[in-house]
Design a protein around this nucleic acid. Structure first.
Lengths: 210, 210
DNA sequence: TGGTGTGAACAACTTCACAGCG
DNA sequence: CGCTGTGAAGTTGTTCACACCA
C-alpha cells in the first residue's frame, strides 16, 4: 500500500488523530487500539488502519499503537516537525482575533508578518509586537521574513487581489477565510474556511427536519 | 429524481451557487448557463444540473437559468427565506470577532443571545447592544429568545459541556469552532469549522511538494 | 440550435472480513 | 489469542453522453 495516491480525507483525519493522540499522551496512555481511537475520533476502526497503512506499518499486531510513536509518525507525515511561518492579510475583527488565537502557536506555526490597507493600522504593532505592513509590501516582506503560508481575512472583494500578490511573492499555501472561490496556479494550495456555508448547511437541516 | 436522498456535498455547493448568483444579480445578469456558472464556482457543469435536479426543474432548455428565479429557489431549498436566531457561546477573541462580523447579518441570521463564564464579561453588553449572559443561563435564555442555532467558540475543554446545555435547551443546530469532536444526539446537527485542520493540510501539501 | 435533465459509466472513498503476525 | 494490515465488496459521489425540449 506504499505508493498509492492518498485521499484528501485521509490527511484531514490524520490531523484529528494527532489531536486525540496528544490528549491521550497527556493522560499517560501508552498504547491504544484502532477501535478505541476510532471511538474517540468518531470514525470507523478500519478507516484508521487504512489511513495509516498509506504511510507505513506503525502498529503492533495483537497489541495496538504506541501513542507516543504514532504521534511522532503523524507529525512527521503532516510536516509538523519543522517551523512554518505565517502571514496574516487583513486585520479586521477576524484577522486580529486569529493572530491572538492560541491554537496557531501549537505545532510550530508562527506569525512573522501582518498586512492591511488601512492607513490607521499600517505602521502600528499588534499585541504580540508584530508590525503591520501595507498590503503593497507583501512581496518584499514575505520574501524577507521567509513566510510559507498566507492567511486571507480580507473582505471578499479584496481576496483575489491579495491571493495574486501572495502567489507573486512565492507563497505556495493559502488559508482563505474570505467567502469567495479564489483562483491560483497549481503550485499553490488553497484551503477554504467558510463558516457561512456551514451555517447555511445547518439552516437546511433545521428546515427539512422540522 | 425527486425523492432521492441528497448528498451532503450538494447542500454545500448550493450555498456557493447562491453567493455567486447574488453577485450576478447585482451585476444585472439575467440568465446564466450551467457552464458559465460552473466556471465561476469552480465545479463541473453537470454537477450543477444534477444538484439542482434533486429539487426540481429550474432551468429553460436551450437558454439556461434565470438568475433571480434560481436564487429564490435555492434560498427556499436552504431555508433562508425565514429568520434564524443565533446564540454565541464564548466571547473570547474569536467569538467577539464573529459577533461583529458582517457576513452573519446577510441571509436572515441574527444574534439574539451571547454567553460566557467570565464574571468580567457577564452583565456587560456587546458593541451591538446584546447583553452577555452566564453560560448557566443557557437553557432559560435560549428558550426565551427563541434561539435556533448555537455557535461554540469556547476552549476545547468547555465545548462538550456547552453542547450538552444547548441540546438540553432544545437547540437542533450547532456551529462548532472548538477543535474537538463533540457528541450530540441525532436530533441535533453539528457543523465543525476547524482551521487548525486546514492549516495542517496546507503543511502536508507544502511538505510533500517541496 | 443550444442548453437542460438524466440514465449509465466511472471514479473515489469506506467498510467488511479475514489472513497474518507478534 | 487479539489486533493490525489489506484485498475484496460495498457505498457514495462525480462525470459523461445524449435524449429532449424551448
Amino acid at each position: 500500500m506504499k505508493f498509492a495516491k492518498i485521499p484528501m480525507a485521509t490527511i484531514t483525519r490524520l490531523s484529528v488523530y494527532m489531536r486525540t493522540l496528544q490528549d491521550l499522551l497527556e493522560d499517560d496512555v501508552d498504547v491504544i487500539s484502532s477501535e478505541r481511537l476510532a471511538r474517540l475520533c468518531g470514525v470507523n476502526p478500519a478507516q484508521i488502519r487504512k489511513d495509516l497503512a498509506y504511510f507505513g506499518e506503525f502498529g503492533v499486531r495483537g497489541v495496538g499503537y504506541r501513542v507516543g510513536d504514532l504521534l511522532g509518525q503523524i507529525k512527521d507525515i503532516l510536516g509538523l516537525t519543522r517551523r512554518w511561518n505565517l502571514a496574516m492579510v487583513g486585520l479586521g475583527n477576524l484577522g486580529s482575533a486569529l493572530v491572538r488565537h492560541a491554537n496557531f502557536l501549537k505545532h510550530g506555526y508562527t506569525f512573522t508578518a501582518a498586512f492591511d490597507v488601512d492607513p490607521q493600522k499600517v505602521g502600528k504593532r499588534l499585541p504580540n509586537g508584530l508590525l503591520i505592513n501595507h498590503v503593497n509590501e507583501i512581496e518584499e516582506v514575505v520574501k524577507d521574513r521567509d513566510v510559507n503560508v498566507g492567511i486571507i481575512t480580507t473582505p471578499a472583494s479584496a481576496a483575489q487581489s491579495v491571493a495574486n500578490q501572495l502567489v507573486l511573492a512565492g507563497i505556495n499555501g493559502i488559508l482563505n477565510f474570505a467567502p469567495v472561490q479564489i483562483q491560483v496556479p497549481d503550485c499553490c494550495h488553497v484551503e477554504n474556511v467558510d463558516f457561512t456555508i456551514s451555517l447555511d448547511t445547518i439552516a437546511y437541516h433545521l428546515s427539512v427536519s422540522g
